[in-house]
Design a protein around this nucleic acid. Structure first.
Length: 168
DNA sequence: AATCGTCGTTCTT
DNA sequence: AAGAACGACGATT
């Protein structure tokens, strides 16, 4: 798993790549900026990987602006269970600026009763931002949750114009 | 505000 | 291997 830093106006994300593509994306850690986790000094990166890094960086910055990335690196979602992958796939079909409820996503994957499990799958999403789990809200109009912290969810939705004038 | 149904995942036996 | 516990939920009372 190669790791690559993605510097953005919002901070430094870290992307992890497997043989198959982007496998994980970490939000900037407010933690110790110092001592930067020795991201494995990459000996020689294949041209493909180099390309994925560029695509991922570009996509993340674009997404942070509230726009749909024109291109994505291949995503490696193999870490998930069958169910989780179904959910993540459904999430990818939610257009920028639109939202769904957990119940709607559950229905979309043909498991209308599993709405609660859908929440779990969202929380397990290894590639937030690019797999837009932030576009799933609770039925009562609330934000629902977000593993990286609701501030990020609010921020992402605001950038997409979904949250008109909420508090930041 | 409290409770209950539901179901995939995770943690315990 | 089987069962209990636990949610980024939603409907009911």
């Amino acid at each position: 798993m190669r790791a690559a830093r993605i510097t953005t106006p919002e901070g430094e994300f870290v992307a992890h790549f497997s043989e198959c593509g982007l496998a994980r994306l970490e939000f900037p850690s407010l933690r110790a900026a110092p001592a930067e986790k020795a991201l494995p000094a990459r000996p020689r990166l294949s041209p493909a990987l180099r390309r994925w890094e560029v695509l991922a960086a570009w996509a993340v910055r674009e997404a942070l602006r509230g726009h749909a990335p024109r291109a994505l690196p291949p995503l490696d979602l193999s870490s998930g269970t069958e169910f989780q992958r179904r959910v993540w796939l459904a999430l990818r079909r939610i257009p920028v600026g639109q939202t769904r409820t957990y119940a709607q996503v559950a229905a979309a994957i043909g498991a209308p009763q599993a709405l609660r499990a859908v929440g779990g799958a969202c929380g397990a999403n290894p590639i937030p931002v690019l797999v837009p789990c932030h576009r799933v809200l609770s039925s009562d109009g609330g934000l629902g949750g977000f593993s990286a912290g609701l501030e990020w969810k609010r921020r992402l939705l605001t950038r997409e114009g979904v949250l008109p004038k909420d508090l930041l």
